[in-house]
């Protein structure tokens, strides 16, 4: 029983990381329809930002965290300006920015690899290691609560909702589509960067950490559902629990158990492509 409790805490903390990456996808997909697979690399940038500010420059954690989130907002905004907006303004099909963002994935990874080298770097935790999981869970819940309130209670949130329902109608109603897109990318980058910062004390910051996070986050998004913020959290938790409980208790070699989340992904895509939580009518 104590094993199960210990594992539940570990899975909840991992689930929060996946949920934040899923949230990053969701913030961009809802208003734009663009799947940005570079979110994993944004998480990597967040982890390296943590290394630079907290390990190298030794800034106090709250200050470093705030500076990093501010920087990630800029990264997301700049990515949208460079890789997405020019294509959208020229009327390119939806696939074009998705491919351009795949190119950005390589740009981010190689820039970090050149700047910091191939070796992993240590990132300090906000609290002692024994409390790190609680901090990760708390920070994630706070972010999800804030995003949920943003969508549910603010005019800005409603304009996001309107754009996701019908871009053309939203534009006719006077909503600035470019601004909504830019803010969605900025928010996505901040969520992904936070995931990187939170996971890095465990995994260290390294240049190949992005793609696995992008895959787990995408799986969480598909399972939870693209339509609702809570779906990303639910999906993240389900992926992490499925992953860790299978490794621990399933009568399978742990090498095979790693495929379970991907099986879930395929199952959901086939049987329930809208995910567990459907969008509100």
């Amino acid at each position: 029983m104590s094993d199960l409790l210990e594992l539940s805490l570990s899975a909840a903390a991992s689930g929060c990381i996946y949920a934040l990456v899923a949230l990053a996808y969701l913030l961009m997909i809802r208003p734009t329809g663009i799947i940005n697979f570079a979110v994993g690399e944004w998480a990597m940038v967040g982890a390296f930002g943590g290394f630079l500010l907290l390990s190298k420059l030794e800034w106090p954690y709250p200050l470093g965290m705030a500076a990093l989130l501010g920087f990630m907002l800029l990264v997301g905004w700049a990515t949208e300006r460079i890789a997405v907006r020019p294509l959208v303004e020229r009327g390119a099909p939806l696939l074009a920015p998705i491919l351009a963002l795949l190119g950005m994935l390589v740009v981010f990874r190689e820039s970090i690899s050149l700047g910091f080298g191939p070796d992993p770097h240590q990132v300090p935790e906000a609290v002692g290691f024994e409390h790190l999981k609680y901090f990760t869970i708390g920070a994630t819940l706070a972010v999800f609560a804030a995003v949920w309130l943003f969508f549910e209670t603010t005019l800005w949130g409603k304009s996001f909702e309107a754009v996701s329902l019908n871009r053309r109608a939203a534009a006719l109603m006077g909503i600035d589509l470019s601004r909504v897109t830019a803010v969605s990318f900025a928010g996505g980058a901040a969520a992904a960067g936070l995931a990187g910062l939170l996971v890095a004390p465990n995994t260290s910051a390294h240049y190949l950490m992005g793609v696995p996070l992008a895959i787990q986050g995408f799986t969480a998004l598909v399972i939870g559902g693209v339509g609702r913020v809570e779906g990303a959290l639910l999906g993240g938790m389900l992926v992490a629990f499925a992953e860790q409980l299978t490794v621990r208790y399933a009568p399978l070699p742990s090498g095979y158990a790693q495929g379970v989340p991907l099986l879930l992904l395929m199952l959901f895509l086939l049987v329930r492509p809208t995910g567990l939580l459907r969008p509100r009518a």
Binding site: D3, E6, L7, S10, A13, S14, I17, V199, N202, T203, L208, M209, V211, P212, L213, I215, Q216, A240, Q244, L245, V247, R248, P253, S254, G255, Q258
Partner: peptide
């Protein structure tokens, strides 16, 4: 006990629990 930790994992606790057991 023979365990594998996947590239990109965020924890090795399930594997280490099995080893402990």
């Amino acid at each position: 006990a023979e365990e594998v930790v996947a590239r990109g994992a965020t924890t090795a606790e399930p594997q280490m629990q099995k080893i402990r057991a």
